[in-house]
Amino acid sequence: MTTTQRQKPVFRFAPSPNGPLHLGHALSAFLNQDMAAAMDGRLLLRIEDIDQTRCTPEFEAGIYADLEWLGIDWEKPVRRQSDHIAEYQTALHGLIERGLVYPSFLTRGEVKARVSASEAGGNPWPRDPDGSPHYPSDDRDRSEGDRRKMLESGLKHAWRLDMGRALQAADRVLSWSETGDGETGGIAADPSMWGDVVLSRSDAPSSYHLSVVIDDALQAVTHIVRGLDLFHATSVHRLLQVLLDLPQPLYHHHRLVTDAKKRKLSKSDGDTGLADLRGKGLSAADIRNLVGL
């Protein structure tokens, strides 16, 4: 990377190859390219393929084909998360050594049963902004000896951020600068609303939260342009950036493209898939119009 490249604003479009791109992805890709061009910046493409159970080479090839058709021009080479597992694991182990992360052993079924029993008894269970219940405190409260025995027994486990300890370690008021389609200006971050978030699972060596902040730092990303569905997740990302001593980018969370029922588009929505729309004879200019640009 040259000195001139470092000084330029850096944007990134970071899809996951777990399904075909749709109109919502097109909006995000267009905005990243348009904003990078307006600021004489750079545009990177990152393939977020940590979840190897759902990500496939066919979907990754589809991403390249769709973006080329849209006229999106990105720098080479592309960063693929599956090539950088060691970097995420190094960061995770550092957090473990500091006592900020703990192994969690409860299954999804056990958590669901606990939550259902609590709510059936008239006791509301705390939930994160996506509506998922916070993880119970059982594993967070275990002694080090019990944790060691359970780990040595080979039990499947995830690694979760101890939110209380992490906030104490950060020891500062967290916030970020926002220029998007919702709230703007200085936004107060509240990571506690997410509870003890997962940073690594038995079937995935890194979570979205952990890998995305490391990738953005290593790629020197200065401007993060993504959908409003990730607005609240930025609170967790700001906490991890502080804990890992990573730089703070600027954020722009854009409006979402929704279906007729005002629901966020899914990769299973074939009628909004870019490849299907291309097959029906639409042009890249048509797609820009469809997403309101």
Rank of each mutant, 00 (worst) to 15 (best):
Q168H: 10
A158L: 03
R172K: 14
E178H: 00
E183Y: 04
A170C: 09
S207L: 07
D141Y: 04
S143V: 14
D215T: 03
R201A: 10
D245Y: 00
E144G: 00
S202E: 15
G180N: 06
S207H: 11
P133T: 03
L167M: 15
L161K: 11
R226G: 06
T179V: 09
E183Q: 12
S132D: 14
L174F: 04
A220I: 09
R140P: 11
V225D: 01
A189N: 05
L246C: 08
H134A: 05
Q241E: 15
R160L: 10
V213Q: 14
M150I: 05
S202I: 04
D171F: 04
R165Q: 11
W194I: 00
W159N: 09
W159S: 13
S211C: 08
Y208S: 11
P247Q: 04
A217G: 07
L161G: 13
Q241V: 08
Y208Q: 12
D229I: 00
E178K: 04
G154F: 00
R226H: 06
Q168S: 12
D128E: 07
R148G: 00
V236R: 03
A166T: 04
Q168W: 02
E178Q: 01
D203V: 05
G185A: 06
H237D: 11
L151K: 09
L155P: 01
Y135N: 00
L230G: 00
L218C: 13
L218F: 13
S192E: 15
R127T: 10
H134N: 01
F231Q: 04
S207Q: 09
D141M: 12
L218E: 15
E183S: 09
L244A: 13
L161Y: 08
T234I: 06
G195Q: 11
W194V: 06
D190K: 15
V236K: 01
L230I: 03
D128R: 01
L228W: 02
E178S: 10
P126M: 02
D196Q: 06
D216G: 08
Q219F: 07
S175T: 12
V225K: 08
W176A: 07
S235V: 02
L161E: 13
L151S: 10
V236G: 03
M163L: 05
S137A: 14
L243P: 02
V236H: 05
R238Q: 15
D162I: 06
G186M: 13
H134P: 05
D190I: 08
V236I: 15
R238Y: 07
D139W: 01
D146I: 00
R172M: 13
K156G: 15
P129V: 12
R226V: 05
D181M: 03
S211K: 00
P205C: 11
P124E: 10
L243E: 10
G182Y: 06
L239P: 02
P136M: 01
L218P: 08
L243F: 05
E183N: 06
S177R: 14
H209G: 07
I214L: 10
L161H: 12
M193C: 13
S206R: 12
V197D: 04
I214H: 05
P205K: 13
D229F: 02
W125I: 06
P126W: 01
G182D: 02
V212I: 14
P126N: 06
A220G: 14
G154I: 01
W194P: 02
D216S: 13
V213S: 07
G145T: 07
P133D: 07
D146Y: 05
D171I: 05
H232E: 15
D181N: 07
